[in-house]
Amino acid sequence: MTRTPLLSVRDLSVGFPAGKGHVLAVNSASFDVHPGELLGIVGESGSGKSVTALAIMGLLPPTAQLRGSLQFEGRDMLAMSQRELRHLRGKQLGMIFQEPMTSLNPVFTVGDQIMEAVTAQDRMSKKAAADRAVDLLDKVGIPSPRRRLEDYPHQMSGGMRQRVMIAIALACSPRLLIADEPTTALDVTIQAQLLDLLNGLREELGAAIILISHNMGVMAEVADRVVVMYASRVVEEAGIFQLFDEPQHPYTEGLLGSTPDMGGTARRLVTIPGGMPSPGALPPGCLFAPRCPKAIPECTTAQPPLLALPGGQKAACIRAPKLALEALA
């Protein structure tokens, strides 16, 4: 039986003004997020991951041009008014932003900022809001939570500030939580603790999570399914085990090759040559072709669509269908 997705993204494109025209930061992205699922979105900086998240949250600037469909529990988010979106955010959608030091207000205490998030959706007394803030800080693993309400962001470590961001995002128990690079610039110990925290909250609250990262090792730890983005487009989608065992796009292979294998045989890491193309000067055909070690002349003639492959995988590579059939043979 097919599950009904909590969030359905179809042919989402996001453009921004540039000169006399506009450039696409996200181009025809499609994927679903199901209740209780942790979906990873992975790719290099500039691939469109964060813009996709901001589009889902309705937080893009007014100059952004959106096309496609965003459905949350069957409701068209792109047709909602700002008032409807504000009600949806916090109550149903929460987001952990990439850099807590710039996302938290330095002149307000941590307690004030959590209490503001709590009271934005639910009317309650100041004492009840403070008690709720204490419960949230305790839930995300901050010791002495009531005393910490009086702290300012600069008085906390990076890992503690990120936990505060998670507490704010959880203030109204959202059904979908978007975490945009939540472990960036944190040491590996704090990173592991935060990933365990997110996984534990998902199991406890039953919330779905979209985890955005450029780190395939992070995805291996917690993701159920992964969407790989490159230069504004989705180039592969697969379950986490399929992705690591049988990647069907050369870009995914490159990301995996550049990820250290702590438990396997020592090997030299593979680098992906070149860099991400400029959104205003995209190459013809497959956008990854100029950097692809497996490119053939046909790769430069047309942009390959995202095709469904045997086993539930999807890949946007003209060689992927043949490779998938060979793997099944």
Rank of each mutant, 00 (worst) to 15 (best):
V110Y: 04
G111W: 06
D112A: 12
I114G: 01
M115Q: 01
T119R: 15
S125W: 14
S125K: 11
S125I: 11
A128E: 14
A133W: 00
L136D: 02
L137D: 11
L137E: 12
K139A: 08
K139R: 09
K139C: 05
V140K: 00
V140C: 00
I142D: 03
S144N: 10
P145E: 02
R146S: 09
R146V: 01
R147M: 09
R147A: 12
R148H: 10
R148F: 11
R148Q: 11
R148M: 12
D151P: 06
Y152N: 03
H154D: 08
H154T: 10
H154E: 06
H154F: 14
Q155D: 13
Q155S: 13
M156N: 03
S157W: 08
G158I: 05
G158W: 09
G159H: 06
G159E: 11
M160F: 05
R163C: 06
R163K: 08
R163F: 09
V164E: 00
V164C: 00
M165F: 07
I166L: 02
I166D: 02
L170A: 07
L170T: 03
L170W: 02
A171I: 08
C172S: 15
C172V: 05
S173E: 15
P174A: 14
R175K: 14
R175F: 08
L176G: 10
I178K: 01
D180A: 04
D180L: 01
D180N: 06
E181T: 08
T183H: 07
T183W: 04
T183D: 08
A185R: 08
A185H: 05
D187I: 12
V188Q: 12
V188M: 11
V188W: 13
T189L: 15
Q191K: 11
A192T: 07
A192I: 09
Q193P: 08
L194V: 15
L195Q: 01
D196Q: 14
D196H: 13
L198C: 10
L198R: 01
N199L: 09
N199K: 11
N199Q: 13
G200W: 05
R202G: 10
R202P: 06
E204A: 09
G206I: 05
G206N: 07
G206A: 07
A208H: 09
A208Y: 04
I209R: 04
I210W: 03
I210P: 03
I212N: 04
I212Q: 04
I212P: 05
